[in-house]
Write a protein that binds this DNA or RNA. Sequence first.
DNA 1: CAATATTCGTACGGTAGCAAACGATATGGA
DNA 2: TCCATATCGTTTGCTACCGTACGAATATTG
Lengths: 149, 149
Amino acid sequence: MRHGQDGEHVSVGAWTKRCYLAGRAVMDAALRPFDLGSTQWYVLWHLKSGGPIVQRDLGRALELERATLSGIVATLVRKGLIEQTSGGEDQRQRLLTMTSSGEALWRQLPDLSFISQAAFDGIDEADLATTTRVLRLATERLQALARTV
Amino acid sequence: MRHGQDGEHVSVGAWTKRCYLAGRAVMDAALRPFDLGSTQWYVLWHLKSGGPIVQRDLGRALELERATLSGIVATLVRKGLIEQTSGGEDQRQRLLTMTSSGEALWRQLPDLSFISQAAFDGIDEADLATTTRVLRLATERLQALARTV
DNA sequence: CAATATTCGTACGGTAGCAAACGATATGGA
DNA sequence: TCCATATCGTTTGCTACCGTACGAATATTG
């Protein structure tokens, strides 16, 4: 994608990047006062709504590689917001639990729903559905391609 | 975007991220044998097709912050693929030029157009146009929002 | 049961992005 | 002319991705 050729193909690729980065920028700005990164927020959100979870399962839910999540978990543990225990049948696994400190921080965080609302409100539902369908199809194709390369 | 609410809003946000990362993954895999990152590729591509350029102008063309491009330029200079000279009227500016070593590498690189083709070929042109329009609008809104936060 | 293969988490090194702060250089006014 | 202001590039420090390789633990298979 985005390799200097004309046509809608490249446009979609370029705008995909811009849109992703722009959304993250707003999220990062909203979370900056709390010293929290956007993916860290997702981890807390998942723990808040789903309770304790095995690290690997959280990685699958958030679509993060083990190495990526490992670093994020380490950061959150260092901040005292979550706890990483090895309590389970499978001794390889790590169970993640929110601490009371994490719960306290969570209560202070602003509601971030304004971001997607600002981005997509008022846009035709059919167009949004089309966009989702195109992006999903392209993603599936790219992920399949990645497995062959 | 992507904050755990239902509806097309969140879908678009989530797929935007997935699609961007999937495309980059394929590009990275294709460029890995050449020890070249995707953004480094864009810099070389821009220099190859547009000739020498002032660093700041390249940053605007690629939509990168000065700090981001500064690091990428340093990497490419370290690899001997580009040259950074201060030849100009404005002594603050740096002019970027491809080296012969960079030209040689460029000739070895594969054509990456297969990536966007694999992603988007066969998809209805109107749907691609809709997707581009939605993503552009959302991006503009998010960038405007970022300026107020 | 022993050997092999898989999986989980981590460490390391790399790419890519940003904000903030700084020195050097232009530029515009007073 | 001189000072305030803006701009360019860099540095520092951070988030967040990935692949590879490794040890430990579990599964599977012979």
